[in-house]
Amino acid sequence: MELNYDFMLKTMLVVLGGVPVTLKITLVSLLVAAPISFFMALVRIYEVKILKQFVKVYVSFIRGTPMILQILVVYSLMPSLLNNAVKYFGWQVNVFEVDPIIYVYIVFSINTIALLSEVFRSALLSVNEGQIEAGLSIGMSITQVYIRIIIPQAMVAALPNLCNLAVNLIKNTSLAFLMTVKDITATGKIAASYGYNYIEAYMDVFVVYLVLCTIIQLLFKFAEEHVGAFRQLKYN
C-alpha cells in the first residue's frame, strides 16, 4: 500500500504536540478522583446508609453507559448549568469563553471517580481484617491503622487494576476531541482532514498511543516489582 511517508513524518511531530494535553487530562482526572473514590470505597465497605445507595447507583450508571454518551451529556448540560450559576452568583465570567478543557476535566473525573472507587474497594477488602484489629489492639487510632497499615498494603494489591484503569483512561481521553480540546487524537484528526491523508495521520496517532500505553504499563510493572518486594518475603 502506498503511503505518504513524508506527510507521516511531518504529522508525527504535530501529533506528538498533543501528548502533554492527553497526559494532563489523565493526571488531573486521576488526582481529582483519588480522594473522592477513596471516600466512596469506604462508604461501600462500611455500608453507610443512604450514601451507600447513592454510590451504588452512581457506579452502576457510569459503568453501564458509554463514555461517549457521558461526554455528550456533560457537554450539553454544563454550559447552561454554568450559565445559571454565573447569573445566580453574579460572577463576572463569560460562559462561552470557558476553556473547554475544564469540561474535559469534569467528564473524565466523573468517570474516573466511579471506576477508581471500585478498584479501591476491592483493594481495601483484599487486606485481611485482622490487620485492623491488630493495629487497634496495639493502641493505634483507626486513622493511623489506615494510613500506616491498610493503605500501603491495599495500594500494592491495587496496582494491576490501577494499571488497567490508567491505560483505559488514556485510551478514553481520545474522545476529548469531541469537546474541541487538542489532544493526540484531535491534532491527528485535524492533520488528517488537511489534504485527505486520513490513514497516514491515524497511523501516527495509533503509534503514539501504542508507545504511550506501553510506557505506562512498563512503569506499573516496575512499580509492582519494587513496591511489591515485601510480598515476596512471605513466599520465600
Binding site: 491505560v167 488528517a192 497511523m203 496517532v205 498511543y209 501504542l210 504511550l212 500505553c213 504499563q217
Partner: peptide, 27 residues
C-alpha cells in the same frame, strides 16, 4: 492482544474505515 490493548477504539475504527478500502483497492 498487546497492540489492541493499547489502541483507542475510535482510532482503530478510523484506521479500518479509512484504511481498509484503500488497502483493498491497492492490494
Amino acid at each position: 492482544t498487546c497492540v489492541i490493548r493499547c489502541t483507542p477504539s475510535i482510532i482503530l475504527l478510523f484506521i479500518v474505515f479509512y484504511g481498509l478500502p484503500k488497502f483493498c483497492l491497492e492490494v
